[in-house]
Design a protein around this nucleic acid. Structure first.
Lengths: 345, 345
DNA sequence: CAGCCGTGGGATAACGATTGCACAGGTACC
DNA sequence: GGTACCTGTGCAATCGTTATCCCACGGCTG
């Protein structure tokens, strides 16, 4: 493959000049520029990004860290959508996207730090966070450029790192809205089917649930709150346990559509009528929710937009531009369907 | 950040020696090795992958080329699943995964070639192909390492590049099986709702449709075959057109579940009973198909496994190992549900 | 006419690793 | 005791760019 030296020789100039043409340097005469460009064409020259990275100390690549549990959690719609969002920005900014694939729960830490230390990425986007996340702590400590989709909380659930950049959908408000929707329909005993409790988004949604209840003057009943993996199976199990309570709920909020599907399926199997005997609300507006019988009330999350915002932020950071608000919260939207208000179709 | 020279100085050896320790070179004494390792630890040294790439001329990164139309086509389940499959292999092989994000129909060509020419990837995996695909032609011509998920056909649909590496699900057989299933249920007029005709997977599925009909001695009726984008909308439109034929079909095969969903929805709206008035078969076994009413008969495609195989192949190629069979065909599985045989639930 | 400045471009040194070659010292063998 | 070989390590070139410094040249100014 042709190098910058070959081009230089062919054009009768020095490598420096070729480099300057490449960079669009102003102090190059029109004549030389054209000679160089033509030589490039003739030799089918393409600059070696690796060599360039070595000297500029930037890779024009950003990493996407998605830990396995998240991938499961958001399973279908989240992953491709957020990538589409991120990709759409990076593409026009001329950045590459490197995926960190990890196996274990905590391997995202190693994977991410390796990307930075080996200089393969200029910054990263994290697609989710845990309470007291050590990866976030490390990135902050090492001052590595990153943007979090979500928000950083310490192990006790208190907001931390006010300087950090993140973009989040308002999970607290979203869950609150969902619960208030049920309250407005007259429900008073509302079950909450949670995912793994140490994720921030599940934590926040639980928070919204509690807030809504508190505002309505309904005491919090721990028996009504279950937590499991984000699978249809665990959704089903949760329903069984909730319905065998002495005073079972008349409505259930699940933190993810997959869980809600499990709940719904188990409820129907049990012979419950939805929503008459039990109302169900999910999260994410998975396309599938428009097809269940009854269709599923759910909270739409602007995933594509989260990706776009996160990417924009990170690019600004890397450019050294100050990012206007360091944190952005995008609103969610309750999509009311038949699983809470009957035949809405 | 510490470099190899810092480590060398701290350990009282030359950079070469440090490099050899890093590479696990055999002719390094135990004592030196330990001194060097300790120095690395103390300095928190991590080798610069960029610098290494420059001299070794490999990036230990592979690219994933997914053109926008494909992303739409396979929308939900395909994309994350194939990445999971690829990732699971690359992770243990120590390769990175770089995503090529493209906007336009033909931009995948530019994107892919740029990755190669700028030396950012050692090889690529293509997630799909068109008839007479120029990207494939270029990769073959330039002898770049690549694996295709799908198979290469020329503009007229003839197999080409017998040397190329690819892994494919047997779309012809799959479609054939689907049609034969309908034939065995007594259907004689079977509609075919296709995606964009220039994709190989749609081409192959149409091929399977024709083969099955031919074997059953049923003449091919072009009126029964429609082609559009892979959206629910176009599925609905296709149904309308098919059902307004003078002699409408009693069964429909759609090349993708999204299309099948559109067909199903439009059919139900039209007051047709499924499967009594119209049987419907889709492709991909999207989780959603288990939730429609009636549930949707579909063809399950081993997406994760396609990713795994493709990645394994590519890694072998990059290692310089001969790949045993250059082409692999994975079987599909017909999942029979209520949209063809009534209440299967 | 001397000095200065702006323009265009060359020389050279990094950037941080790998690697072929050379070489010192020790051991084994004839 | 000399030669040959093995072991362990250093030297220096190299990968393909960019960046810093510097110089040549021409025109303008005083």
């Amino acid at each position: 493959m042709a190098t910058i030296k070959d081009v230089a020789r062919a054009a009768g100039v020095s490598p420096s000049t070729v480099s300057r043409v490449l960079a669009g340097h102003p102090r190059i005469s029109q004549a030389t520029r054209e000679r160089v460009l033509q030589a490039m064409q003739e030799l089918n020259y393409h600059p070696n990004a690796i060599a360039r990275s070595l000297v500029t100390r930037t890779s024009r690549t950003i990493g996407l860290i998605t830990s396995r549990p998240t991938e499961q959690a958001f399973a279908n719609p989240f992953f491709p959508e957020v990538i589409r969002g991120i990709g759409s920005v990076l593409e026009e900014e001329g950045y590459n996207l490197l995926l960190a694939t990890t196996h274990g729960e905590d391997d995202d830490y190693e994977a991410c730090m390796r990307l930075f230390r080996s200089r393969q990425v200029d910054g990263v986007i994290l697609t989710s966070s845990r309470l007291g996340d050590r990866l976030i702590a490390a990135l902050v400590a090492e001052e590595q450029p990153f943007v979090l989709i979500g928000r950083p909380l310490d192990a006790e659930g208190r907001p931390v790192y006010p300087e950090a950049h993140w973009v989040n959908n308002d999970n607290v408000a979203a869950a609150q809205t969902a619960v208030e929707h049920l309250l407005s329909l007259g429900h008073r005993r509302i079950g909450f089917v949670n995912g793994p409790a140490h994720w921030v988004f599940t934590y926040d949604r639980l928070e919204g649930y509690r807030t809504a209840l508190a505002r309505a003057g309904i005491p919090y009943d721990p028996d009504l709150v279950l937590s499991g993996h984000i699978t249809q199976q665990d959704g089903g199990r949760a329903l069984e346990r909730l319905m065998s309570l002495p005073d079972p709920p008349t409505a259930i909020v699940a933190v993810d559509d997959t869980l809600a599907l499990g709940v719904l399926d188990a409820a129907l199997r049990r012979g419950l009528r939805v929503p008459e005997d039990l109302a169900v609300v999910g999260f994410n507006d998975d396309p599938i929710t428009a097809w269940t019988r009854p269709t599923l009330t759910t909270v739409r999350i602007p995933v594509f937009e989260l990706g776009v915002m996160a990417a924009r932020m990170l690019v600004s950071i890397l450019r050294g531009q100050p990012v206007r608000p360091r944190q952005v919260i995008l609103p969610c939207q309750l999509v009311v369907r038949a699983s809470t208000v009957g035949e809405g179709r």
